[in-house]
Amino acid sequence: MGGYGDVQMIDENGIRVDGRGPADIRPITIETGVVPVADGSCRMTWGTNEAIVAVYGPMEAHPRKIQRQDRAVLDVAYNMAPFSTTDRMRPGFNRRSREVSKVTKDALESVVMLELYPRSKIRINIEIVSAEAGTRCVGLTAASVALADAGIPMTEMVVSVASGKINDIVVCDLNKEEDNYGEADLPMGILPNTGELVFLQMDGDLSQDEFKQAWQYNMDASKEIHKIMVDALRGNSS
């Protein structure tokens, strides 16, 4: 979260810098089968974010020590490509990427039917090739599309979206400029058919009322995004 400053990001009519209203999300496109050698894959653009996700498996879990006798494990690796950010991202170990990988894995393990594949692993590689704001949401949403494309059984799809606060106003889906001046960020992973949650983070400063508003924006947006995911998965198959 950046500073507060005097920068006015929303005009008196509630219109944001890129012309959106408070509840509007950025444009989204989803395409499956973009990594032809993978079992399943997805490219998702969301504003100027772009994620490519490939799914491989189920395959034997290596190394042995990660194997579980009663279920499969997900091997999730979230990574930002060196050219995905304004200042070049140095390849290699990165604490932020490790954390995002972990919370993404925890979210997806809640819906993938792991018990069907003892001792196996399913590899999910999330590559952010262009980052704007909200890449963890893009990664998680795209990963659930790629898993469906790979034929991995899941009880629900996960839709991830964030709301935040700028100039003391709660808005949905912050873009890069808004994120720079944002005062709070609430990313959630939502199961759109039931409204249940599998992923939740928050940082910043929100009153109880603002928090409720942000929560509601995310719930509403998840339904809209889910439609785009369903269309993509329906359009790309025989």
Binding site: D39, D149, G151, I152, P153, T155, L233, S237, S238
Partner: peptide, 19 residues
């Protein structure tokens, strides 16, 4: 729980997966 074609036969509903 999978993507695929819905099949309805013999009292069972199943999905013929695309992958």
């Amino acid at each position: 729980v999978k993507r695929g074609m819905l099949r309805d036969g013999g009292g069972a509903i199943s999905v013929e997966p695309t992958h």
